[in-house]
């Protein structure tokens, strides 16, 4: 099954990526090429097969309820593009009306 331009636009919205018109067209055909590769998996009979999400067979890994090492705020925020005191500044979260 082929993806269409509209599907690509929808996925781009979910992924918060912006594409130009040209990129969208090119990407739609590219994506179809790769999905064709993925379609090969249809050949594999996986009835009754459990998926393996994690290869490590380990369970019950916990930490204690004590504070660990903490970064001083200045270090934690040192890479922030826009900072105010100990917070990150972003365009308004609530619609401004």
């Amino acid at each position: 099954m082929a993806v269409e331009r509209g599907d690509v636009e929808h996925v781009a919205t979910l992924a918060r990526l912006a594409f130009t018109e040209e990129e969208l067209v090119a990407f739609t055909s590219e994506m179809n090429g790769i999905l064709a590769l993925f379609e090969e998996l249809r050949e594999v009979d996986t009835d009754g097969v459990e998926p393996v999400f994690r290869v490590l067979r380990r369970r019950n890994v916990f930490r204690g309820d004590e504070p660990g090492e903490m970064l001083p705020p200045d270090e934690a925020l040192a890479n922030a593009p826009d900072r105010h005191e100990d917070t990150f500044r972003v365009p308004a979260v609530l619609p401004n009306d």
């Binding site: 934690a76 500044r89 972003v90 365009p91 979260v93 609530l94």
Partner: peptide, 12 residues
């Protein structure tokens, strides 16, 4: 400082 154009996020 959080005027109507921006929000401040505390990640603590």
């Amino acid at each position: 400082h959080s005027d109507s154009d921006s929000s401040l996020i505390d990640m603590n």
